[in-house]
Design a protein around this nucleic acid. Structure first.
Length: 319
DNA sequence: CCTCAGGGATCCG
DNA sequence: CGGATCCCTGAG
């Protein structure tokens, strides 16, 4: 089916948002398994022009699928109900933001298909490269997620906090685990632990985070909180600081008033809005939230990509 | 072969 | 508050 909406699917997929790794590209379609009404559905999204996207799907067994639910899910993930035209009008009133549209036309939020996946992605993204954390998250899904065999191939969901909380942290823990079970000799090549997925020193954070979502924090309650309350809740999770918290709130839960502020946004905002004067990351966050208000999240997304594509980032990195 | 940064968080003073 | 350190991979 065809959904009419202005969006650049490729830009949105490749923009490095920490909601999830890009979906798997199969014959021009971005594919991922999604739980829709508790049924695993393979969504296949493609695009011929910027005014619409095409959605196909595969299901397992003979469940009757309501296409309206699929439509809603797609609209939710790609934020299709966000009024891009209105946002561009807002951008055009800001001399600094104005040029960003030329580089970001059709870029939308790429929201989490699985909120826990988003949280692990965001924790993994800290002081890390996009290629590395996306690879790690995909590896975690392939090791401990459910594998579903669709006609188009096998696709893995992301494991639940319950599953992930039981995996070994590293090679050492894994070997200890084995020797407890059955006096096995030490295995040199350990592949059944978090660190083997390349998350590095974030492995204990991810384990503790998994445990927290089993007991202290209900992952779905955050959806219904206001922004401040949600921020205070999610930042209690180990490995989650201010920037990662805002990423989770923006890309995971869709709090559009969040303005995730990292070193790059700091450099960009300092350059564009403060005449190059060095502003602290926390001040940049305050500035962004006040200046852009309900558009803060989108403004951050557009600023980052504008800087990336326009060469501004290269220019600022040499300072 | 090396060295260095990568959309930060944490701990420590 | 500021600064050092953290794992590991790819680019140079």
């Amino acid at each position: 089916m065809k959904i009419k909406s202005t969006i650049s699917l490729q830009l949105t997929q490749k923009s490095g948002q920490t909601s999830q790794p890009p979906w798997k590209l199969l014959e021009n379609s971005y594919c991922a398994v999604n739980l829709i009404d508790k049924n695993p559905i393979l969504l296949k999204v493609s695009q011929n022009n910027i005014d619409s996207i095409n959605v196909e799907y595969e299901s397992l067994g003979c469940n009757i699928i309501d296409e309206k639910q699929i439509n809603n899910k797609i609209a939710e993930i790609f934020d299709l109900n966000f009024n891009l035209k209105k946002f561009y009008k807002f951008l055009s009133n800001d001399e600094k933001l104005k040029p960003s549209v030329d580089f970001c036309n059709g870029l939308r939020l790429f929201l989490a298909k699985d909120i826990f996946e988003c949280i692990v992605s965001s924790i993994s993204s800290a002081n890390n490269s996009i290629v590395r954390w996306t690879k790690s998250v995909d590896t975690i899904a392939s090791k401990w997620g459910n594998g579903y065999n669709f006609d188009s191939g096998t696709f893995n969901s992301f494991p639940s906090p319950k599953i992930l909380s039981t995996v070994y942290e590293d090679d050492i823990a894994e070997n200890e685990g084995y020797s407890k079970k059955d006096n096995k000799k030490e295995i040199l090549e350990c592949k059944n632990n978090l660190k083997s997925c390349g998350v590095g020193y974030r492995a204990p954070y991810i384990l503790k985070a998994s445990e927290m979502f089993l007991s202290e924090i209900n992952i779905y309650d955050i959806q219904d909180m206001n922004y401040e309350e949600a921020f205070d809740t999610i930042i209690k999770v180990p490995g989650v600081g201010p920037k990662v918290a805002d990423c989770i709130l923006l890309y995971g839960y869709g709090f559009k008033e969040a303005f995730p502020s990292d070193v790059w946004i700091k450099r960009i905002v300092s350059y564009l809005y403060f005449d190059g004067k060095d502003i602290s990351v926390s001040k940049v966050r305050e500035f962004g939230m006040e200046e852009f208000d309900k558009y803060a999240g989108y403004a951050q997304l557009y600023l980052f990509h504008f800087a990336r594509k326009s060469g501004l980032m290269d220019k600022l990195s040499k300072k």
